[in-house]
Design a binder for these strands. Structure first.
Lengths: 182, 182
DNA sequence: CTTACCATGTAAGGCGTTACATGATTCA
DNA sequence: TGAATCATGTAACGCCTTACATGGTAAG
């Protein structure tokens, strides 16, 4: 239990909520989790096999499965593993924003170029913010349906809060650059 | 010029400002850049050799060098490469917060545990925020000394803005959890 | 004289992406 | 019937971290 592979924990976390195929896990990563965690098929499928090998997940091959889908579910062992990992202190929070890197070296390209990087960043945030707000609304409406929604909402609100701060910064940063330019 | 290795660009960016040893580059990464980019010796030294091999940087082995230090400087080629990279649109901004991941699966550990993760996060932010504010002050005072300071300040202010948003979120998130608990 | 920091590097191994390969099903 | 999406996987490769290995110098 020294250094857990995060991909294992994420998959177990998703399986703790519902049984899923590898494909569906990928979809969750591309939607609900994309703001703070991502993964590709090339890491998901091997991880699933590994989890089954370690007895933390199982293939439930029975039932309503017309296609040759493989539906995975978490085992009691897996649930225990997940609970232990969640209880452990956070090891690393990491942000890698290429936008900030290019801005840091912005002198090379000058203020106009820097502004265009900020614009692109702003556009992306402005596009994504409504999705987050929509997700928060949906979660708030269905709060009672599942205890997990409370925790999901927490992370969505983190996104909303930081995205709004980003937009404020974009405005001020551009103002600063254009003032300098004048 | 298809997909640049970021480590190369960061090193060239630092060298565009001043001549540095590998050790000093690492220090910059651990201080000024740590909030949005990191690297270890195991990536820095090989990258430096590679940059020299490609003619983008050179070892300046002359002069005020009592120790057996190797001071690197950027070449004209390197400067061109850097300018081209800075001009290119941003490919990826990525955030990987384990805190959010643990919170997302927070149902496993319950509200008290979730609160303690938020507390730890808050503590870290509260420790780092004054450093950012101090850095911003210093930069503002020495604005005229170097044109690059303007761009550095932009990134520091990004940090300040988002950290303040984080702290607000921490407060609200904890309030929400303790209200639920009651 | 010894601790802390300066300084450079390598080797092994982990982790994960990209690209590829394949095929079923649904819907227009 | 063709496009989009569902669905599973592998192989090659790249990148980086960790840990190790080594030694100089400054300060107390």
């Amino acid at each position: 239990m020294a250094t857990e592979k995060k991909i294992d924990c994420v998959i177990l976390g998703l399986l703790s909520h519902e049984n899923l195929t590898g494909y569906e896990i990928k979809k969750r990563m591309d939607t609900a989790l994309k703001y703070f965690w991502g993964a590709s098929y090339g890491s998901i499928y091997p991880a699933l096999s590994d989890l089954v090998g370690r007895g933390l997940a199982t293939k439930c091959e029975g039932a309503e499965n017309k296609r040759n889908k493989i539906i995975y579910s978490i085992t009691e062992e897996g649930r225990k593993y997940l609970r232990e990992w969640v209880a452990l202190p956070v090891e690393k929070d990491e942000l890698r924003y290429e936008t900030l890197l290019k801005l840091f070296f912005g002198k090379e390209g000058g203020p106009l170029q820097a502004e265009s990087h900020i614009d692109a960043f702003q556009k992306k945030i402005e596009e994504e913010l409504p999705c987050l707000i929509g997700a928060a609304d949906t979660l708030r409406e269905n709060m009672e349906l599942d205890e997990a929604h409370k925790y999901y909402l927490l992370t969505v609100e983190f996104g909303i809060k930081t995205y709004r701060a980003y937009l404020e910064w974009c405005k001020e940063a551009k103002a600063m650059l254009s003032k300098e330019r004048a």
